[in-house]
Amino acid sequence: MRKEFTDQSKLIARYRNYLKLEKGLSPNSVEAYMLDLSKMLTFLEMENIPLLELQLEHMDQFAAFVIDLGIGARSLARILSGVRQFYQYLVVDGYIENNPTELVDSPRIPQHLPEVLSTAEVDILEQAIDLSKWEGHRNRAIIEVLFSCGLRVSELTHLKMSNLHLDEEFIRVIGKGSKERLVPISQRAIRELEFWFADRNVMNIKPGEENYVFLNRRGHHLTRTMVLIMIKKYAQQAGIRKTISPHTLRHSFATALLEGGADLRSIQAMLGHESIVTTEIYTHLDTSSLRRQILEHHPRNIHHHSPQPNPDDSETLLQ
């Protein structure tokens, strides 16, 4: 028996609570879902379509409406996914019997493989840091932790001292949806952290900020923007021509693991991906690297290419 529907605003409020409490999404993720849903609600109001009477054929009209707003294929796919989840919630909660959006096809999204850095390029990036400056050891520790642990930048900025288990060589990370995972940490990253802690221990840390690992000179924890600006600055100083961000180091972490022989399930667990499909992008990265190696080194291809630069030449690391 269908649940009685009387107040749309109350229903939307219940859905918000469902995302927050039952799905365990972060406040930012909840707001993103609600913003996408608001586009559907606007469309339904414009077309005078009752919320519970949406039909599959209406979805093509909705997609056209979203495209007319200037929204691209990737964002459209995300919005349609959110709408599907909302109507599935209505099924589960007893408002409708069938999800009218189940058979909606998402737009094809051109796959742009992310930039990655080799280990040598990460070394060059770290070498660009002036360790005589106050923030030098902190910034080197940031880069090394991002590369060694594959953290999202938000996970790094919220990393707590109480979540470091350096004697056991792992850290506890709070990821999306407040989900926890344990990630191994390298001896190199531990050493860089210890150098930073020597500086951190003499800081004047603001009340309430004492548990954050990475702080600015005023004793507050870092923001995502501060980390982004810092990494871009060092990349420019190091002569790295790739367009990189903190997320580049996460991609580099995963790619290095795959090239080193790690299986996708292990990489998925360390990255905190909910779905293995998200992790599978790294198989494309590895295939791209394999193709390049074949073109450069297979005897049937070598005579078609000009001689390769000396691999010891640091310039080749920046291509």
Score class of each variant (00 low, 15 high):
L90G: 03
N310V: 06
S38F: 05
L285Y: 02
I96M: 06
G82K: 00
S275I: 01
W196L: 09
E97R: 09
K232I: 02
L295Y: 14
A77N: 04
P114Q: 09
K179Q: 06
G261K: 08
S289A: 13
E4I: 14
S26C: 11
E57W: 00
M1V: 12
V213K: 07
H112T: 12
H298C: 03
N48I: 00
S106N: 13
Q55W: 01
M161T: 12
E4H: 10
C149L: 05
M270I: 09
D312C: 01
R200F: 04
Q293I: 15
I142Y: 05
E115G: 02
E194T: 11
K39S: 09
S38V: 01
S162T: 13
I67L: 14
K242N: 07
L69M: 13
C149H: 10
D123H: 12
L52E: 13
F170D: 05
I281D: 07
F65S: 07
I109E: 14
H158R: 12
H165P: 00
L193Q: 00
T225H: 11
Q127W: 07
A198G: 00
P246E: 08
A64F: 09
T283D: 04
Q55D: 12
L228F: 15
N28I: 12
S148P: 09
V116L: 04
E280Y: 02
L56S: 13
L11H: 02
E315I: 11
D93E: 15
L166A: 09
F62Y: 11
E259W: 04
S26L: 11
A141W: 01
M1N: 13
K232N: 03
R217C: 01
G260L: 01
H58G: 06
K179R: 14
A128V: 05
H158N: 15
M59A: 08
Q127M: 13
L41V: 08
T279N: 09
L131T: 14
R265W: 06
E22V: 02
R2I: 14
I142R: 11
R140K: 14
D199G: 00
F197R: 08
L290N: 10
E4S: 14
K160I: 01
V122K: 06
H305W: 01
L51M: 14
A73L: 13
I302G: 02
D263A: 08
I294H: 12
V173N: 07
S266T: 15
I171Q: 05
E259V: 05
H273K: 01
I244C: 10
E102R: 11
A13D: 14
F214D: 02
F195Q: 13
T225A: 10
G82M: 04
Q237F: 00
K3R: 15
P50A: 08
D313S: 13
V173C: 10
A256C: 01
K179C: 06
T225K: 07
G260F: 03
A77P: 01
I240D: 06
D312P: 00
L271V: 06
L258P: 08
L249F: 10
A256L: 12
L51Y: 05
E4W: 00
N211V: 00
N301K: 03
M1Y: 10
E45G: 08
K133H: 04
I190F: 02
E274R: 14
S314F: 06
M1R: 13
L166I: 08
I205F: 07
H221D: 03
L146R: 07
E115F: 01
F147T: 04
E144N: 10
L228W: 15
K20R: 12
M59F: 14
K39E: 11
H58Q: 03
E22A: 03
A256N: 15
I174P: 00
P207M: 02
P50Y: 08
